[in-house]
């Protein structure tokens, strides 16, 4: 359990998907203009990462690897299968959420399709493969990575809401400041390096 908690904390704060690996930067910069929308997108990312990560783990282990059902190395199909899983999962989640909770659907609605091309999702799955996690670890990694991304986008949205009232040089307005702020947040998150819950 301590091992899993450690992976969660590590993927959420130290190896933050957005602020250490540049993943999901496009939507990170495009959707972080207000806290409310950032909150919705962040929740959707946690949701989709938490679901797709275990599914992709099962595909990798039982279908693609040499010890799987076909007992041949099919890893060259990894990209196509992973992205297909993510695209169909997002579609499925969208339909389920629409049926079960229209209120949540209205707040997440437009962001769900966007998530298909959010690199954090595919990147998370590819990292899970390259780090050779087992099932429990991949769930912890998915949830932790999603949570870290959520924290990062809500924080940057809050800063960007405030900075709107500052007198910034015209050429730096908007996008330029967003990049600078992201860089500074990255520096702040670098300060968390070295936290280790196993040896606490």
């Amino acid at each position: 359990m301590g091992e899993l908690a450690n992976i969660f904390i590590k993927s959420a704060f130290i190896e933050n998907l957005a602020l250490a690996y540049f993943l999901g930067m496009c939507s990170f910069l495009a959707v972080s203009k207000s806290v409310k929308t950032a909150f919705g997108l962040g929740l959707a990312v946690i949701f989709v990462l938490g679901i797709t990560m275990p599914i992709n783990w099962m595909i990798e282990t039982y279908l693609l690897s040499e010890n799987g059902v076909f007992s041949t190395d099919l890893t060259f199909l990894r990209f196509i299968l992973f992205i297909a899983v993510i695209a169909s999962m997002v579609q499925l989640v969208e339909m389920v959420v629409e049926k079960m909770s229209p209120a949540l659907y209205n707040s997440l609605g437009i962001f769900l399709p966007l998530i298909t091309v959010n690199c954090a999702i595919l990147g998370g799955s590819l990292f899970m493969v390259s780090k050779e996690y087992n099932f429990g670890e991949s769930v912890a990694f998915g949830l932790g990575g999603g949570f870290g991304w959520f924290v990062a986008i809500v924080a940057i949205a809050a800063i960007r809401e405030k900075i709107k009232y500052s007198n910034v040089p015209p050429a730096m307005r908007g996008l330029g400041m967003a990049f600078l702020l992201t860089g500074m947040m990255g520096m702040a998150f670098m300060g968390l390096m070295g936290i280790d819950f196993v040896n606490f």
């Binding site: 307005r173 330029g176 600078l180 860089g183 500074m184 670098m190």
Partner: peptide
């Protein structure tokens, strides 16, 4: 990580100062 962001921020600054019609 952070310096990549800083370098691009400066690039954007330079690009927009040189080509003012892109200013946000």
């Amino acid at each position: 990580f952070p310096s990549a962001m800083f370098v691009i921020a400066v690039l954007i600054w330079a690009h927009r100062a040189w080509n003012p019609k892109l200013v946000d």
